[in-house]
Amino acid sequence: MFRGLIARQARSILIDPYANAFMQDPAAPTNLPWALKDETVMKPGVKLKDEINNLNSYIESRKSESSKLESALAKKHNDYNDLRKQRDELQEERKYKRTWRNR
């Protein structure tokens, strides 16, 4: 199923790399009314491979940022748990001192 989807998307990209829409007939040059009058100048230096690489770099940078945030969050969570543990120990100590004084 995924292979078919990827193949169809590749055919659509070959037909119109910028619009890249799912067309009714992927073999047709175009069946989109707006595309018949499209006068978009395709830049010679821009290739689909470059666009994909740029998108991939962006995704990788977001993954990196996400993992940094996750590790920072995990550290804060551990710090929070340590503080709760200290608080609980102090409360137990106070409770022990109160019971000791009342004897």
Rank of each mutant, 00 (worst) to 15 (best):
Q91N: 15
R87W: 14
L90M: 07
L36K: 02
S71F: 05
D16N: 15
L14S: 07
Y80A: 08
M23Y: 10
A74D: 10
F22W: 09
K75P: 02
P26I: 01
M23T: 05
I13C: 05
A27V: 01
Q9C: 02
S12T: 04
A10L: 04
Y96A: 10
T99M: 15
D38R: 10
Y18E: 12
A21H: 02
A7F: 09
L48V: 03
R87C: 06
K97P: 00
E60H: 14
R8G: 00
P33E: 05
N54A: 10
I13P: 00
K97F: 13
A10N: 07
L36N: 00
R62K: 14
P17L: 04
T40Y: 06
E92L: 07
K68E: 12
G4S: 09
D25E: 01
K37R: 14
Q86M: 05
R87P: 02
K63L: 06
K97N: 11
D79E: 13
M1H: 15
R3F: 12
K85M: 05
A72E: 10
K37M: 07
K49D: 10
W100P: 00
S12C: 13
S71R: 11
G45P: 02
K76P: 07
L73F: 07
R3Y: 12
E92C: 09
E93K: 08
K85W: 13
Y58A: 10
A10D: 04
P29R: 07
A27P: 02
V46E: 15
D88R: 15
A28V: 00
W34E: 12
E89P: 00
K63T: 04
Q24T: 04
L83V: 00
Y96T: 11
T99N: 13
N54Y: 03
K85V: 09
L48S: 00
G4W: 12
A27R: 08
R8E: 06
P26F: 02
R3G: 04
F2E: 09
H77Q: 10
R87S: 06
Y96S: 06
L90W: 13
L83D: 02
L5C: 07
W34R: 15
N54H: 03
L73R: 14
R94N: 09
R94V: 07
Q24H: 04
E51N: 12
Q91F: 13
